[in-house]
Each structure stands twice: as structure tokens, then as C-alpha cells.
Design a protein around this nucleic acid. Structure first.
Length: 438
RNA sequence: GCGGGCGUAGCCAAGUGGUUAAGGCAGCGGAUUGUGAUUCCGCCAUUCGGGGGUUCAAGUCCCCUCGCUCGCCCCA
């Protein structure tokens, strides 16, 4: 029979990794809690039009990367390629914006039909933040600070914040004509990709990786010089705010976001320790989106961070990779002992203990070996002899520090070292066991 | 969508056209029907990602295909 396997770009997260994912999620939750940001959960599946209108028809994400299909009711559906459009849709649909400004966060899988690569899957995961209804530049600073502090708390190194302003839509329209005019005159010097973008999305030429194109762009008119005075002031306020908080950043005049809805502040947090997909967190202001999706004119700023990329960085920290060990490992053998072991395991769990029960019915030696490997500090050994007298043997496997007693005696080489001759094993009544652990 | 590298067991791998596909780790069973190390013994790939072809003979050569991986594009 043909072997079944997951679809391309759809990745299983195995226990060795879910430990890291859980740490990331817990840390993020904590930072959102402190910042007064509420969680919002929206469906994975949305009407295709939401993304077409929200993200922009001309973008690659909408144009060629969406998982779209017709459902049984002939509705055009799309698995969400990002979170912002859905959050905005939900806020409009439920009238949340009439209750004043809102701070939301979300997390979960996103889908883009791309060629998988380091730090890029077809089903990938983002945690994102959206501040709706905040026009003040301080909102931009606060949003960025939450991302920055979260990443710092996770301990990942090599991060850099890059900042730019895309200006208002008027600024951009003006700059766009200026840039296209300038580049048209030098069309021959552009790489083919950039030539094509001249018609579709000229601003994206700015972040081309082609060296010749970059060299040419060094002479081109800049976006910042096209900004209206108000836009300039607003950008200066954001920079001043970041400086006041001691968050380092560098201006990158060629930083252009790929989704159409961004305006004014645009930023990326990148890591030097990733491959080509180095952006860990990206976001910016999107003052026009809510209105564009049919809501009231509402200024907004948000960001999303790529969880896979962050987990890649967490892996490099080489900390705590294994699942936590149980407190007790229960070893049993025999017709009387096995049911008792099952009962005690449950009882101890109900009392809050982490208990692993050996279900193999193998020889005691085998079970003890597994008990040792489980990392548990205690083994509960139950044979028929004990079970008949309502007793158990509690065996110390290792000191709380984590060294197994065998390791310790070998290391110490002393006959009366910790656990060498000492009381590594004691016989307890069920009552005594409950007193000890319940 | 385009280009490079790679697919031998759960994991790491040897193998470079010739007979039975090394070895290690992990796992399982036993030596030891009731106590963790070490040691020893046994089991664990009718088949080399899948399909087709060349050949007396294919894991090895060719074609197709699937997947992984790195880069481009794009993005978080």
C-alpha cells in the first residue's frame, strides 16, 4: 500500500518541538496580558473577497499564493493567508469599533501556497497584534515595544529593528509617479523582475535584491523626500518615542511592505541567525483598511510574527528541549499489583502529581530501567506481595537536582555518598503514601 | 513558478553494476518469573521514496514522478 504522508509544506510538530512552541505561546500571552491586549479568534476560512479587497489584488499573496476553492454552496472560500483582514472584518461585523479603540491579538495557522524553504511552510503560524482606532504616533511606538520586549524576553539574539515611513496614500501616489518617471528613463538598467513591476507595483522595486538595481536606486528619488510635512512630523514622533524607550532601530528607506494596506510606519524585526527568510516580525500602520473593508474610517497599526522562524531561533538557544519528567513512575507486576497501580496512579494524579504508569507487565528490571530513563525522581514499585498487604515500595531514583543515584555514586566514588548506602528505598502503607504525596 | 543539492530501517549511516544490503543508536525479548550500571545473546530493510527503462545482472546507470533541503520570487 502506498505510504500516506502529510501534504507538501504541511508540517507535524512533534513533542520535541511543541515544548518550544508552548514556551513561545505562554510568553506571548503574558506580554499581551500586561499590555491590556485581548485575544480574538477568527475562522481559518473566509470569503475570498475579504483578502482580495483587504490585501490587494495586485499582491503576490492574493494573486498566486492563496488556497481558494468553491464550497458545496458555491461560495468562493480562502484559507486565510494572514490575520489582519479577518480581525478587521470581525471588528466591523460585530460593531466593536463603536465601543472605542480596541487592542487585539490573535494566533494560529495561516496558509500560503509557496515553495517551502527554511522558515517558510505552506501552513505556517503567526502571532499578531492589532490596535484599531489609534491615530497617535505613540500607538506605533507601543505596538513595536510589545513586539520588541516579547522577543527580548524569549532570549533570542541577533535581532534588529528596521523602520521606514510609507507616508500617506497621497504621499505615495505622488512619489510613485516620480519614481516611475525616473525609472522609465533608465528601464534598460533594471533587472527583468523590476521592469515588470514598473507597471504593477513600482514601490516594490525598492527592495529588490538585485545588486545592479540597488546600485541604480542609490541615485533615485527617495520616498522620504516625497513625504508631506505632516507625514514627516509623524515619523519623527515615532522615532523619538522609540528613542525615549531605548529601543534601537535603523532607518531603512527601502523597506516596503508587500501588502497594499500599509501606510506611514512600516517596520521589520529581522534576525541575523536565520537564512534567507530573516524577517521574524513585520508590521506597520494601515489607516485605510477598515474603511476599505466597509467599516468606519479607523486608524490602525499592527504586526505579525512568524512562529516557525522564532522557534528556529529558540532551538539555537539549546535550552530545555525535553518534555518535563514525571514526579513518580509506577512499576507493577502481578494480578493483585497491576489494578492497585492503576488505581494509585489515578489517585496521585487527582492529587496533582505527574505520574507515569508502566503498562508493559515486563520484568521489574525492565520497568525500573524505563523508570530511570523517564527522569522521574521517584519510582513506586508494587508487586503482589505488597499489594496484598496494602503496601508499596517508594524508591528514590535520583536527587531532586536531576542526577541519577547511579551517576552520583559513580561520580563520588564514596561508599557513603548520597544514596550509596542510604535509604534509597522504603516500604510504605497506602496511608503513608497519601500523606507523602497527596 | 524558476535554479542547485539530497532521498538506504524510527534516527545516524556503509555501499561507486556482480552472489546473503555493513555497522551504530533507539526499540523489543532473554541471560536475571521481584529491582536501575556494565556485559552477553537473540529479534528488528523479501528491499534502498515511488514508477518505468537499460543490462545476463541495478541501491548503484537513464527517464519520469513524489518528497526533503538551500537559494530566487514573495513574505512573517
Amino acid at each position: 500500500m502506498e505510504k500516506l504522508q502529510s501534504l507538501r509544506g504541511m508540517v507535524d510538530l512533534l513533542p520535541a518541538h511543541t515544548v518550544l512552541w508552548q514556551r513561545l505561546e505562554a510568553t506571548a500571552r503574558e506580554h499581551f496580558r500586561r499590555a491590556g491586549v485581548a485575544e480574538i479568534r477568527t475562522p481559518l476560512l473566509e470569503v475570498t473577497e475579504l483578502f482580495a479587497r483587504g490585501i490587494g489584488e495586485a499582491t503576490d499573496v492574493v494573486g498566486k499564493e492563496m488556497y481558494s476553492f468553491l464550497d458545496k454552496g458555491e461560495r468562493r472560500c480562502t484559507l486565510r493567508p494572514e490575520g489582519t483582514a479577518s480581525v478587521v472584518r470581525a471588528a466591523i461585523q460585530h460593531g466593536l469599533l463603536s465601543q472605542g479603540p480596541q487592542r487585539f491579538w490573535y494566533g494560529g495557522p495561516m496558509f500560503r501556497y509557496e515553495r517551502p524553504q527554511a522558515g517558510r511552510q505552506r501552513q505556517f503560524h503567526q502571532i499578531g497584534l492589532e490596535f484599531l482606532g489609534f491615530a497617535d504616533p505613540r500607538a506605533d511606538v507601543e505596538a513595536i515595544a510589545v513586539a520588541w520586549d516579547l522577543l527580548a524576553d524569549l532570549g533570542v539574539g541577533g535581532l534588529a529593528l528596521e523602520l521606514n515611513s510609507l507616508g500617506s496614500s497621497d504621499d505615495r501616489a505622488r512619489y510613485r509617479t516620480e519614481l516611475v518617471g525616473w525609472l522609465e528613463a533608465r528601464r534598460g538598467q533594471l533587472d527583468p523582475d523590476s521592469q515588470a513591476r514598473l507597471a504593477t507595483n513600482p514601490l516594490r522595486i525598492l527592495d529588490s535584491k538585485n545588486p545592479d538595481t540597488q546600485a541604480l536606486l542609490a541615485e533615485a528619488p527617495t520616498l522620504s523626500s516625497a513625504l508631506a510635512p505632516e507625514s514627516r512630523e509623524r515619523f519623527a514622533a515615532v522615532q523619538a518615542g522609540l528613542e525615549a524607550l531605548g529601543i534601537p532601530f535603523q532607518l531603512n528607506p527601502r523597506l516596503v511592505r508587500g501588502l497594499d494596506y500599509y501606510s506611514h510606519t512600516a517596520f521589520e524585526i529581522t534576525s541575523s541567525q536565520l537564512g534567507a527568510q530573516a524577517t521574524v516580525c513585520g508590521g506597520g500602520r494601515y489607516d485605510g483598511l477598515v474603511e476599505q473593508l466597509g467599516g468606519p474610517a479607523t486608524p490602525a497599526i499592527g504586526w505579525a510574527l512568524g512562529m516557525e522562524r522564532l522557534v528556529l531561533l529558540l532551538e539555537q538557544l539549546d535550552s530545555q528541549r525535553s518534555a518535563p519528567a514525571p514526579e513518580l513512575y509506577v512499576v507493577s507486576r502481578g494480578a493483585a499489583a497491576e489494578p492497585l497501580a492503576l488505581r494509585l496512579a489515578r489517585e496521585l494524579r487527582l492529587a496533582g502529581r505527574a505520574v507515569e504508569l508502566d503498562l508493559s507487565a515486563a520484568a521489574f528490571g525492565k520497568q525500573l530501567k524505563r523508570a530511570d530513563r523517564s527522569g522521574a525522581p521517584w519510582a513506586l514499585v508494587i508487586g503482589d506481595g505488597e499489594a496484598e498487604q496494602d503496601q508499596v515500595i517508594l524508591k528514590r531514583l535520583r536527587a531532586p537536582a536531576g542526577l541519577s543515584l547511579v551517576d552520583q555514586t559513580e561520580a563520588a566514588q564514596a561508599p557513603d555518598g548520597p544514596g550509596a548506602g542510604g535509604q534509597a528505598e522504603e516500604r510504605l502503607s497506602l496511608l503513608e503514601l497519601r500523606e507523602r504525596f497527596a
